[in-house]
Amino acid sequence: MSHTAHIRSHRKPRRSASNIAMRAGVAGGVLGTLAVTGASGTANAAEPVTQTLELPTLTADLAAQVAQSADVTQQAAANYELQAERDAAAARAAKEAKADLAEAKKKAEEERKRAEEAARKAAAERAERAARAAERTTLSASVEVSSGSGSSGSGSASAGASVSTSTATGSAAAVVSFVRAQVGDAYVSGGTGPNSWDCSGLVQAAFRQVGIDLPRVSQAQSTAGTQVSLDSLQPGDILYWGGAGSAYHVGVYVGDGMFVGAQNPSTGVALKSLSYDPPSGAVRVL
């Protein structure tokens, strides 16, 4: 025993049984509570947690906005499509316009060439007529000189008065028949038939019927056979106007003082008297 134990103030207070019991009860309650809480926590950890999200309610105003947005989108798509169609139409129109312009230029060029060709032919015909007129004037002067000197002459002065009127036969008849059949056809510079001719084209085609291939131009045709005088012509002879080798016109004598020739655009292929346009000379091929 402590030497101070007999002093009351130095003695440790004794715990009463009630205090001990109360403390034990509190401790037990705390432990029980912890046990329940742990069990509850374990159970809650084992169960899945489900979270529910609430979507916003589609109100009337929101629905109207959605519909309006859809209309705007549809209108924009329609506008884009319309613009695309307009662009395509414009491209097609531009392409067609370019093609039309090219065609117009082509036609204009063709018209220009035709006009130039027509002008060239007209100029050639005028030159030919002028040359014939000059030749006739020269021949007329020669005839007057011959007549004044009392010479009977054997050229143009007697042409049409003493020419042969015998009927054509054989190849000559075929040539005469051909040129007579073309009377009334058109005169076209450079024409070789079958419905339009120039002078040398008609003569060449006539002799081709009997197997004779004459040169194409009048200058060469005027020297293609034997030269004969105009007072002894026979049907089928080739008449020429101008000099031999430089003739500017030819025709075919058909008898009875007549000839057939592709004269000019005004008369076409015509049957004429030698006095209408007295020739300068003649050649015989048959």
Rank of each mutant, 00 (worst) to 15 (best):
D237R: 02
P235Y: 08
P215S: 13
R216F: 09
H249T: 04
V228G: 04
L214Q: 06
A244N: 06
G255E: 05
L239S: 02
G242P: 07
Y248G: 15
S222N: 11
A220L: 15
Y240D: 00
G225A: 12
L230F: 07
S232H: 01
L214K: 03
L239A: 00
G245R: 12
P235D: 04
Y253D: 00
L233R: 02
Q219M: 07
L214M: 06
A220I: 13
S246F: 11
I238K: 02
V254N: 03
F259G: 01
A244C: 10
D237H: 03
V260L: 11
V250W: 03
S222Q: 09
A220K: 14
V252G: 03
Q219S: 14
G225W: 14
G225S: 08
Q234F: 04
L230V: 07
S246L: 06
T226H: 10
G251C: 05
D231T: 14
Q227T: 15
G242H: 10
G257E: 11
V252R: 03
A220P: 00
D231E: 13
P215D: 09
L233F: 02
I238G: 01
D237K: 03
V250P: 02
A247R: 02
V250E: 03
S229L: 12
G242T: 06
Y248E: 13
T223N: 08
T223P: 09
S229D: 14
A224P: 10
V250G: 00
P215W: 14
G243E: 12
S222F: 10
H249F: 13
G242M: 05
V260C: 14
P235N: 08
S246C: 04
Q221R: 12
S246I: 06
